[in-house]
């Protein structure tokens, strides 16, 4: 029975080809340092799942954001756990992505033929920081409000374009309901979409070139 289903699927989507091309590949001897990239991707997926749960109760308006988070923490069954994982997952993801980047730098894995993988990786690092930056405002508490005030202010010091960037980020000269709305939109739609697309390309390139081996004396 299983065999019939498997064969039917194999004829249509080529399961055997997928297996030989993606899973059954040779790799150089990998160390634990090589697991950081996949761990970052695991965190991204996990952040996505917990984030989707959070949007069920979260309200992106200055009047209700704080109370809705309060409700998630106090009123929803296991809401504290979901939010706790999302909160700490964000912190861990920034650390992991950064260490992953350092590993690639120190082993010079960004060199031929993996230059493009590195470029995409930098994009992933920056978008991860963008996720952190936009997500930080959403609880709408003192810490997040003032952190975003400072953060956008710094972006506003760019010569010539500063005022435009500041207003584009905040949706006006001051932090307001508009800021919260656009940070929310960026946090749950725009940046994750970019992040997911970049992860896809990053993965494709990794499978194409294989993981780099630990540099030996002659390399």
């Amino acid at each position: 029975m299983w065999k019939t289903v498997y064969n039917w699927l194999d004829e249509r989507i080529g399961l055997n080809d997928l297996y030989t091309n993606i899973l059954d590949r040779p790799e150089p001897k990998t160390s634990w340092w090589n697991t950081l990239g996949s761990a970052s991707m695991f965190l991204f997926i996990f952040q996505g799942l917990t984030g989707i749960f959070l949007t069920v109760y979260y309200t992106p308006s200055p009047d209700h954001a704080y109370d809705s988070i309060n409700y998630i923490m106090e009123g929803v069954a296991f809401g504290w756990l979901i939010r706790g994982i999302h909160h700490w997952g964000a912190t861990l993801m920034v650390i992991l992505v950064f260490i992953h980047m350092l590993r690639v730098f120190y082993t010079a894995s960004f060199k031929y033929p993996r230059e493009l993988t590195w470029l995409i990786g930098i994009g992933l690092f920056l978008t991860t920081l963008g996720m952190g930056f936009t997500g930080y405002l959403l609880p709408w508490n003192q810490k997040s409000f003032w952190a975003t005030t400072v953060g956008t202010q710094i972006a506003g010091t760019v010569p010539f374009l500063g005022e435009f960037i500041l207003k584009a980020l905040r949706g006006g000269p001051d932090l307001s309901a508009l800021t919260l709305q656009r940070f929310f939109s960026a946090h749950i739609w725009i940046i994750p979409a970019i992040l997911a697309a970049l992860i896809g390309i990053h993965l494709f390139l990794i499978i194409k070139h294989g993981e780099s081996h630990w540099p030996q004396k002659e390399d």
Binding site: I22, L23, D24, R25, P26, E27, P28, K29, T30, G210, S212, H213, Q216, E218, D219
Partner: peptide, 13 residues
């Protein structure tokens, strides 16, 4: 060199 490392290496899965 990479090919040589692959020969001494492991399976992805």
């Amino acid at each position: 060199r990479y090919e040589k490392q692959l020969e001494k290496g492991e399976r992805f899965w």
